[in-house]
């Protein structure tokens, strides 16, 4: 394949390196990371060393599951120009041991609805956020309340 034809092909790209898109349209995207072989600590994405136990170059790749729990959130009403508000900024605990920053979707930005969701189960989903300068689809992830 020449670089010319490659540039004409529209591709999907993850917004962050620790989000891996499926190889085929049927395969779900997932968050991936590194697990320290010495102490078991999990991290998002690639690591050179373990910040907890200081082991170096001793990691297994880990695939995070699609569920997490809501650790904390804020409803952001004021942001930089071009950023749509309000949005729900959150920290989601992953059962494999790390935590991830994410927007919460599928629920109104209402404290009365979100406070009861603290500590509750969430499910990850992906969506196209926008297109980059080269016309690729930029894919992001969010979490929403998991079905009971």
């Amino acid at each position: 394949m020449t670089s010319e034809t490659e540039s004409k092909e529209k591709t999907q790209k993850p917004i962050v390196p620790y989000l891996r898109l499926g190889a085929t349209p049927d395969e779900k995207a997932y968050l991936w990371g590194s697990k320290c072989r010495a102490c078991g600590t999990a991290y998002l994405g690639k690591r050179m060393a373990c910040a907890k136990c200081f082991a170096v170059d001793d990691f297994d790749e880990i695939r995070f599951g699609e569920y997490g729990t809501l650790r904390t959130f804020s409803i952001v009403h004021q942001s930089l120009p071009g950023i749509e508000v309000p949005f729900i900024a959150a920290v989601v605990d992953l059962p494999e041991g790390a935590a991830v920053r994410a927007n919460i979707g599928g629920i109104e930005p209402d404290p009365d609805k979100l406070v009861p969701l603290l500590g509750k189960k969430l499910q990850m989903y992906t969506e196209k956020l926008r297109e980059d300068k080269e016309g690729n689809d930029v894919i992001g992830y969010r979490f929403r309340p998991a079905q009971a």
Partner: peptide, 21 residues
């Protein structure tokens, strides 16, 4: 490329949101 800016779509790293959280 601003298309890859995570702020506002992958949570927030702005000071108000961090301290609110």
């Amino acid at each position: 490329d601003p298309a890859y800016m995570p702020e506002g779509v992958i949570g927030s790293q702005m000071m108000p949101a961090v301290f609110s959280q």
